[in-house]
Design a protein around this nucleic acid. Structure first.
Lengths: 220, 220
DNA sequence: ACCTGAACACCGTTCAAGT
DNA sequence: ACCTGAACACCGTTCAAGT
């Protein structure tokens, strides 16, 4: 029975709990978006996938926005923080950053929600911050510099997640190449780099810049 | 007459050109969004502000998305690139980056459009890239490193623009402070920094890291 | 307490009919 | 060539009526 894990929530005299719990709605939303993407994700579709009427959802989630907030916090548990406490601080930080970028590259619409959602409403997000902050603290980064370091990394990660979704030829100047000779030449040169996607080259460059700077904040 | 600048487009025998040109639609959209924000920006509202029926817009713009693309490219002309060629390369770069962030902080919904729109469809955006690329080239940044440098800066700028829009207390852990002692302490310490907004402190930190790294790419 | 079905208040977009 | 007005195909959300 897939209900077994919900037994604790069941009240006496009620043989079956409703299917519309936060974890189940979140899981259904994640599945649906994985299958058909964010553009076609509707409350109607979500309800259909759960076998209920659309209006039933509103007994459990106040709005579509709230469902997306649940999803955002859930997605955060997929970010790889296993390096902290197990690897050197900078290795752990790189591993975290790459995984964070990759996950939000496949969940771009969650970025705008994440960026303005207070951590009080997102416990898993807070868990992640705590782990990263602990990693920086034990690397002897001064306490006052921890939040700016995380925010700078996170801003770079969010922006880079957008960039992953961009078409490969986004910088091809085409017919306008004559009016932008220097940039066009730079784009051509950049293509020469073998085996690495443009977005990955830029992400590595920026990430190394930030990691290096954070390293120089460390107390002796 | 505000029509004077449109004289070149006017055909003989037609006393008045339509009001629905790309620059006029763009200007109206910018005015409307400045007044009431992106959330309430609709094709109906845009049409009303131009004195036409909503359907009339579709003779000139294929979709709302296209109007937003026009707007994105227009907004790009407001980014301050005057430092390039007039100031040291790093001063010009900082000036450009701050102004770029500030503008997109007030036009957050354009970020997702910008991030995936090919430059061929955005001539003003391309102009900006050319100016920045020229600035880096005359600072003797190797050609192959120019695009990764710009992309890394831009990703950081976009992510930081989101952060500006975040509520000031986004990191206040409240009742969850016990489960996140290190992060909560870091947030409290971060607040001590006098006179500067949290988002600005993080932006400065990250920007200096990137500018520093770009500086180290320069050929002698 | 929680579900259904119908309805509401919007959206963006299309299209026949006009000039 | 370009506008109007009506219509269409959705959305998210509300709410009375049921159990």
């Amino acid at each position: 029975m897939s209900d077994a894990d919900d037994a604790g929530h069941r009240r006496a005299g009620r043989p079956l709990e409703t299917v519309l719990t936060r974890p189940r709605i979140t899981a259904a939303a994640l599945r649906l978006i994985g299958a058909t993407g964010y553009e076609s994700f509707t409350m109607s579709g979500l309800a259909r996938s759960l076998g209920v009427a659309p209006s039933a959802l509103y007994n459990h989630a106040a709005s579509k926005q709230v469902v997306l907030q649940w999803l955002q916090d859930h997605v955060m548990t997929m970010v790889d923080v296993a390096g902290f406490g197990a690897e050197p601080w900078d290795t752990a930080l790189r591993r975290w950053a790459w995984s964070y970028r990759d996950i939000f590259a496949t969940h771009v619409p969650l970025i705008s929600i994440m960026a303005v959602l207070p951590v009080t409403g997102a416990p898993q997000t807070l868990r992640m911050y705590e782990t990263v902050a602990a990693g920086l603290a034990s690397a002897r980064v001064p306490t006052a510099q921890i939040v700016p370091s995380i925010v700078a990394l996170e801003s770079f990660i969010f922006g880079s997640a957008f960039d992953v979704a961009a078409p490969a030829d986004i910088f091809e100047t085409g017919a306008l190449a004559e009016s932008s000779p220097i940039f066009s030449a730079a784009v051509r040169q950049g293509e020469q780099i073998q085996g690495k996607a443009r977005a990955d080259v830029a992400f590595e460059f920026g990430l190394e810049a930030l990691v290096d700077r954070i390293g120089r904040l460390r107390r002796p």
